[in-house]
Design a protein around this nucleic acid. Structure first.
Lengths: 337, 337
DNA sequence: CTGTTAGCGCGTTCAT
DNA sequence: ATGAACGCGCTAACAG
C-alpha cells in the first residue's frame, strides 16, 4: 500500500477555467445542458476529459437538497428473502443516478432507531424500510423530517408515509385454510422468531381455530440447519405429525432434509409448506409448496415512488397491498401429477 | 401519502441558539467534547433533544473531507457467496459510524467503470471491490484519486491499492489434485461464466494436465436450476461421468438434485464438489464437499484497513492471501464414516 | 444564453 | 474554554 498521493482532485472551478467559461456555466453544461449552447457544452465536456473531473455529489447535494441517495434499512443482508427487493430497488435507482445506502438492524429495535438517525443525517432522498418502522419515536421523527418513507414487506393501517406489502396474518390464514382443506389435523409450525413470522403464525392459528399447535421457534435468520432441528423438535412432541407450516423456504428445506434423514417420505408421510418461494423451492426434490410474494416488484414500486416524489409529483396510494399466492408443489401434494 | 410538510429541520445554528452558545461551541460540544466545559456540553445536549437536531453529515463531510462512507461494489446482491463478506464489512463499519454505499456491476466491465465514477463522486473514505477492478482506466483513476481501495475475493500481483483474497487458480488446482488422488478420470466441470470461475477452471485443467474435460458453462449468477441443467448436459456428453467439479455450491446442489432425479447415487455413482462452502452445504443430504473461504474475515479485514487509513495510520501489507481449504463431505466420500 | 451574487451546514483556521 | 471569520464545492436565484 502506498501513501495517499498529495493529489488534488479537479473541481468544477478547474473545469471552468480550462474551458474558459464561468463556474456556473460549467455547472449548467453538465447538469442542465438544455440552457447552454452546444459549443459551450462541447468545450466544457472537453475540459472535463482533460482535467479528469468527477463531480462532488456531496457538495451538489448540500446546495440542491437532493443527495440522490436512498437509504435501505433491512433486518440483515443474509436474509435471502429480501434480496430480490433490494436488488431491483438498487437497479431501478441506479438507472436514475441514485445510490443505495445500506443499513442493518439485526432485528433489533434499538439499532433500528440508531440506524435511522444516522441515515437521516445523510439526507437521503428517500428511505425504504424492509418491514415496518417499529419504534414510535422513530416514526414520529420520520414523519417530522419530510423524507419520503416506504415501508415494505408488511401491511399497516397507518404507515409512517407509504407502505407496499401484504398482510402476514392473511398469509398465515391462507396456509391454515389450505391445511384445513386437506384435512390435516396433526399439524406443526416451524417458525423464525421475528415479528412478521409471528404474525403469520397468529393468522394460521386464528384460521385453524386452535392455539394448541406444536410450534418450534428458531432464531432468525433461519437456515437449513435450523429447519432440521425444528422438525426434530416437532416430531418429539407429535410423532404422528402430518403437516408442517414453515416460516421460510429455508426452514422448509431443512425440514425436508431432516425428514429424508429419518426415512419419512414427503409428501407421503409428511406435508411441508414454506414461505417466500425461494429460488430453489421449485427445483429441489420434492419441490416445496410455498407462498409467493413479488419481491422485485416491491423494489421497483418503491423506487418509482421515491423518484416521483423527488420530482415533486404527487403519488396516489399510501397503502399498496401486493397480495401473495400459495403455490402448491410436490412437498404437499398427496398425489404427484 | 401526505404532501411533504413545510418542515425545516433544525440545524446546528438552531441548537446553538437554544443553548445560548455560539455555533462553533455547539459543534465542538458534539464532535469534540474534550475541549468544552461539562456545563456547556449539558446545555447543548439538552438543546439537541429539544430541537430534534440531527447533524447533516453531508455538510460535515464537505468541510472535513471525510464522508464516513465506504463504497462496496459487487457483481450482484443475489450472489450469496459474497454476502457474508458484505455483511461483516457493513457491521464492522457501522460500529465505527461508517455507512456502506452499494454498487452493482452485474458482471459488466462498462457498468463497473460507471459505478466507480459515481462512487468516487460521493467521496467515500474507502472503496471495497468484490473482485478485482477490471477496467485499466478505472484502475488508473482510482490510483490517482487517493481513496483507499481494497480489492477482495481474488489475487493480484499488482492491486490498485490493496487486495485481500486468494488465488482462484490454486483453488482449481487443489480440486483437481483431490480428483487425481481419488483416481477419478471421467470428470466434468459445471461452471458459471464469470471471470473467477474461469480462473478456477484453468487451474483445474492445468493440474489435471488435460484440456479435453467436458464442461457445461452456465450464466452467472448460478442457481439450482442451472446446476440441474449442467449435469444433464454433462451426462449427455459423458454418460460414464464419475465426478463433477462445480463453480459454486448452488450449482453443486443442483447437480445433486438432478442426480437424485435420475436415480444416480451420490457419491456412489457420482462424486460432486462445489465451491464457497455455502451455509446449506453441510446440511443437505448428501452434504456437499466444498472449498471454504473465510468471507466474513475478508470483510472485517477490509473494514479495519479502511478505518486505519482514515485515521492516518500506515498499513503494512498490500497483498493478503487468505488461502482456502477443501472440506471433504459426503458428496465425494466413497465410504461414509 | 451567460455571468454575478449568495449561500447550503458545518468544521477548520485564527483569534480572544 | 469560547468565538468570528472563512471557505469546502457546488447550485438557485437573480441579473444582464
Amino acid at each position: 500500500m502506498t501513501a495517499p498521493p498529495p493529489y488534488k482532485p479537479a473541481t468544477l472551478r478547474d473545469v471552468a477555467k480550462a474551458a474558459g467559461v464561468s463556474l456556473i456555466t460549467a455547472s449548467r453544461a453538465l447538469g442542465n445542458p438544455g440552457v447552454v449552447s452546444d459549443k459551450t457544452i462541447a468545450k466544457v465536456r472537453q475540459a472535463v476529459e482533460a482535467t479528469g473531473y468527477i463531480p462532488n455529489l456531496l457538495a451538489g447535494g448540500l446546495k440542491s437538497k437532493r443527495s440522490r441517495t436512498v437509504a435501505v434499512i433491512m433486518p440483515a443482508l443474509s436474509v435471502a428473502q429480501f434480496l430480490p427487493t433490494v436488488q431491483s430497488l438498487s437497479s431501478a435507482l441506479a438507472a436514475q443516478g441514485y445510490q443505495v445506502i445500506l443499513g442493518e438492524t439485526n432485528y433489533d429495535a434499538g439499532r433500528e432507531e440508531a440506524v435511522l438517525n444516522t441515515m437521516i443525517g445523510r439526507q437521503p432522498d428517500g428511505i425504504v424500510m424492509i418491514g415496518l418502522v417499529h419504534s414510535p419515536r422513530a416514526q414520529e421523527r420520520l414523519r417530522h423530517c419530510g423524507i419520503p418513507v416506504v415501508e415494505t414487506w408488511d401491511m399497516s393501517e397507518r404507515p409512517v408515509d407509504t407502505v407496499i406489502g401484504f398482510s402476514h396474518v392473511k398469509v398465515g390464514g391462507a396456509v391454515a385454510g389450505y391445511f384445513l382443506s386437506r384435512g390435516w389435523t396433526k399439524v406443526g409450525i416451524a417458525t423464525g422468531s421475528d415479528h412478521r413470522a409471528s404474525l403469520r403464525r397468529e393468522g394460521f392459528l386464528a384460521t385453524l381455530g386452535r392455539s394448541d399447535v406444536p410450534t418450534a421457534v428458531v432464531p432468525s435468520p433461519s437456515s437449513i440447519a435450523l429447519g432440521r432441528r425444528a422438525l426434530a423438535e416437532l416430531l418429539e412432541r407429535e410423532p404422528g405429525l402430518q403437516a408442517v407450516s414453515c416460516s421460510s423456504d429455508m426452514l422448509a428445506h431443512g425440514v425436508l432434509v431432516e425428514a429424508q434423514a429419518r426415512g419419512l417420505r414427503v409428501p407421503g408421510d409428511l406435508a411441508v409448506v414454506g414461505f417466500g418461494d425461494a429460488e430453489f423451492s421449485a427445483h429441489v426434490l420434492p419441490s416445496i409448496t410455498s407462498v409467493h410474494v413479488d419481491g422485485p416488484e416491491i423494489g421497483r414500486m418503491a423506487a418509482r415512488l421515491i423518484i416521483a416524489r423527488c420530482n415533486g409529483e404527487a403519488v396516489a396510494q399510501p397503502v399498496v397491498d401486493m397480495g401473495f399466492r400459495l403455490i402448491e408443489r410436490e412437498s404437499s401434494r398427496a398425489h404427484a401429477p
